[in-house]
Each structure stands twice: as C-alpha cells, then as structure tokens.
Amino acid sequence: MSVTWSFVSYTSREETFLSKLDSFTEMAFGGRYVILLMALFSIYCGLIYNEFFSVPFHIFGKSAYACRENSCSDAYTAGLVKVRDPYPFGVDPSWRGSRSELPFLNSLKMKMSILMGVSQMNLGILLSYFDAKFHKNALDIRYQFIPQLIFLNSLFGYLSLLILIKWCTGSKADLYHVMIYMFLDPAGDLGENQLFWGQKELQILLLLLALVAVPWMLFPKPFILKKLHKERFQGHSYRFLGTSEMDPDSEPDSARSRHDDFNFGEVFVHQMIHSIEFVLGAVSNTASYLRLWALSLAHSELSTVFYEKLLLFAWGYDSLIFKLVGLIVFAFATAFILLGMESLSAFLHALRLHWVEFMNKFYHGDGYKFKPFSFATLADDEE
C-alpha cells in the first residue's frame, strides 16, 4: 500500500510541475533521459576523436607522429613521421590540420557507419528469431530468420569482416573493387586486393549462399502453409515441423489465420513482396547508415569553421571590442547551431534508422496497442 501511495504522490507532483511549464520546455522535460544519453554519447564521441569544439587535445598521451627535423616549420602539413606506437585511444590528434585529415577521417567514418549498421541489422534479425520463438512459429524461424541471416552476412557481414582485417593488417586493398568484382568476376584473380589466404574461394561460397537464401525465403513457406491448410481442412491430425500436435492454440498464427479462407495467390504474393523488400533493403538499409558518416563530417566541418573563421579570426585583432564580439558570435553559433540544430538533426536521423532499418527486421505492428511505461498506470494496476 505504501508503494502504491508513493507512485500516486510522485505522479501528482510531476503533473503539478508539468502544468507550470510551457509547451517547448515540457517537451524537453519529457525527453530528459534521451537528452542525457545524447550528452553522454557526445562526450564519448569527443573522446573518440580527441577533440573539444574542433580543437585537438592530447588527452591520452603523446602523438605517434613527430617532426622529421628540428627545423621543421610546418609540422601540420609536411615533415611528420611516425616515431612511436599508435595513439592508445581514439583518433590521433595530429591528424587534425594535416593534408591527409579529410581523406583519412572520411574513410574511417564511412567504415564505422557500415560496421554499426550491419551490427544493428543483425540484432534486428536476431530479435525476429525470439519473436517467432515466442509465438511458436517454426515456419518463420526456418524460412525467414535463417535465410535472412545468411543473406545479410554473406554480403555485408563479409564486407564488415574485410574492413576489420584491413584495419588490423594495414592492407592497401580496395574494398570497393573487392565487393564489385565479387559479383562481376567471382573466380577472377584478386591480385593486390587479396587480404587473406582462401579469400577467392570464400567469396564464391558466400555468393552461392546469398543466391540460395533468396528462393529459400520465397518458395517454401507459402507451399507449406497450403499443405497445412489442406490437412487441417480434411480433419487430419499431424505434427508440424517438430512442434506439438496441432490445435487452434498451438499452431502458427500465419496458418491459424488462414483456416477458413486460404488464398494461396495472396499468400505467395505477400511472401514475394516480403522477400524482395528484404533483399533490396539489405542494400539500401546498409547505405542508409552512411548518413552517420555525412552527419559526423558536417558537424566536424561546422565546428572547424566556427572556431577558425569566427573565434580565431576575431582573436587576431588587438581590439577588445572585436574579440568580445567574436566570442559572443562564436558562443551563440555553437549553442544554437551545433548544440541545438545539430542535436535535433542527429536525433531525427537516429530515430529514422531505428524505425526503418532496425525495426523492419522484426516489428509487424499487428499485435496489441503499445503502451509506454508510466508510474500512473502502475498505480492504477495496484489499486
């Protein structure tokens, strides 16, 4: 009873507090936990790139690069050589301002986006397995989950593996060339693009698995559902794919919903659309994660422009007024553009990636209505 009373008192205090807020502040208060997580992740990304408002910091020790000669006058554009082990954490700060900064960071961010995307899509497919297992639907496990997992990882899982191998070995292989000619000339000589022994044979095997996975997704399930309906209609008892003896409560939802009115053409077309959508989506969804690369690049370049073209430009004058105006403009540009608009943009893009690229692997939206967690509903249930 005391627990229920604490829930009710907390809810009443929260409602009193929200009634005193305007609409914009109330929206920010409702998303306070999301804002906190975004802030913590922004700090983490700053440590990954070892930057603070586009200013490089040697937080974790000395750079791996140094000037070749003591008389080197332009260490950020020429004359740098590697003198010690790689930087212990994140990006080496000496890349900032160098001639190779943009090509290096472009390649790094693009590959990181692909790795994050493939990892999250695999997680979505894995959740579809638990969803099918919860509903005791062996059809979806055997003819959707398994071939989807094989297809995605035969192509883009393999690309992720190549990225990791290239990072670990320092190879100069062109991964674009490897992936393109994996389809155009799978038996061709890889030459300098070979990263490990047996790569050509592995590519042929993965390509065959990807080709097999497509009809695996498309054809078996509709025909099994047809046979399932026919046997059920004739009143025969049977066992279905290793599950318990079929009854209206234990059989798959996909089969149970078609006992009375089973249209094979409709089921086949639906499965064909689902299969084609997954195959094409595997390419487009992976490419969609490259928006992380684009957003990171835009944010970094905006930070550099505000720092160098506003703050440092104004700081170059001897006038205190110029310095003060430059500092004020820099502060407002940072607060409203980098912290405000860029945060909103990152949130919307992340929301889109979760809703489309991630959730379309397992979410169907045909169950009960979603109810978000609330202390008020818990109090009502206790009463």
Rank of each mutant, 00 (worst) to 15 (best):
L211S: 09
L205I: 06
N106W: 13
F336K: 10
R68M: 12
L175M: 02
I165A: 08
D261Y: 08
S244F: 04
L155D: 02
L195I: 07
E69S: 09
Y307R: 15
L344P: 00
N285K: 14
L312T: 09
D22V: 03
D380K: 14
R84F: 03
M112F: 11
I337E: 13
M38S: 08
F7V: 09
H270C: 04
S319D: 12
P186L: 03
Q199S: 06
A132D: 09
A314V: 06
L348S: 11
P93W: 06
D189M: 07
I224A: 06
T169R: 06
I125R: 01
D185G: 01
H299I: 06
S288Y: 10
R32D: 01
S374C: 10
D185L: 01
P103D: 11
T169P: 00
F322L: 11
R258I: 08
R291D: 02
E308D: 15
F313A: 13
T243R: 10
A287T: 03
L209V: 00
W355S: 09
I273S: 04
E245W: 13
V91C: 01
K82N: 12
K230A: 11
T286G: 05
M116T: 05
D261V: 04
E251F: 13
H270F: 06
F145A: 08
G365C: 05
F219L: 15
N360G: 00
L21E: 05
H270A: 14
K136C: 05
E192M: 07
R256V: 07
K309Q: 12
G340L: 11
E301L: 14
S244Y: 04
S63P: 09
S98V: 01
V329G: 02
F278D: 01
G188M: 09
F89H: 05
K111T: 05
P147I: 10
I204V: 13
K369Q: 10
L195K: 03
F29N: 04
Q120S: 04
G198A: 07
Q271C: 05
I165L: 12
G170D: 00
E14I: 05
A78T: 12
R258W: 00
F264P: 04
I321W: 13
I328T: 15
M341W: 10
